[in-house]
Simulated scan of single mutants.
Amino acid sequence: MSPEDHTPIFLTKAVWRASSCSGRQGNCLRAAVGLPGALPIRDSRRPAGLRLDFSHQA
């Protein structure tokens, strides 16, 4: 089963913003912005890979 099969429906159209430390190479972290109650973080080099999900309370 691919990682895409485990992507929650609310993340399928998420807008991912690059971290300010990514620079021009884009080899840092990306955060999905504008999601109520959640802040997903992923590796910009592996967008379909594992992801960390934080609540806004964290």
Rank of each mutant, 00 (worst) to 15 (best):
D5L: 12
S55Y: 13
D43Y: 08
S20H: 09
R24D: 00
R42N: 05
G26P: 01
V33Q: 12
V33P: 03
L35D: 05
S44F: 07
Q25K: 06
L50M: 11
S22T: 01
I9Q: 03
S22G: 03
R45H: 04
F54Q: 06
S55I: 08
S20L: 09
R46C: 09
G37L: 14
L29S: 05
R17H: 11
S22R: 00
G23D: 01
Q25A: 09
R30P: 00
K13Y: 05
A31I: 15
P36L: 15
C28T: 01
G49W: 08
A18D: 08
I41Q: 03
N27K: 11
L52F: 14
R30Y: 10
A48P: 02
V33R: 14
P8T: 01
G23T: 01
A58I: 07
M1S: 12
A31Y: 14
G49C: 06
A18T: 04
L11V: 08
L52P: 01
A58W: 11
Q25I: 00
S20F: 08
A32F: 05
L39E: 07
C21N: 06
G26A: 06
R30L: 13
S22D: 02
D5R: 09
P3G: 12
N27D: 06
S2N: 12
E4Y: 01
N27T: 09
T12N: 00
M1F: 12
L39W: 07
M1N: 10
P8W: 10
D43W: 08
P47K: 08
A18E: 07
M1W: 11
L39I: 15
T7I: 12
R30G: 14
K13A: 09
H56I: 14
G23K: 03
P40K: 04
R42V: 03
P47W: 10
A14W: 03
R42K: 14
G49S: 10
A48W: 08
S19G: 10
E4Q: 02
A14G: 05
F10G: 01
A14K: 03
A31V: 15
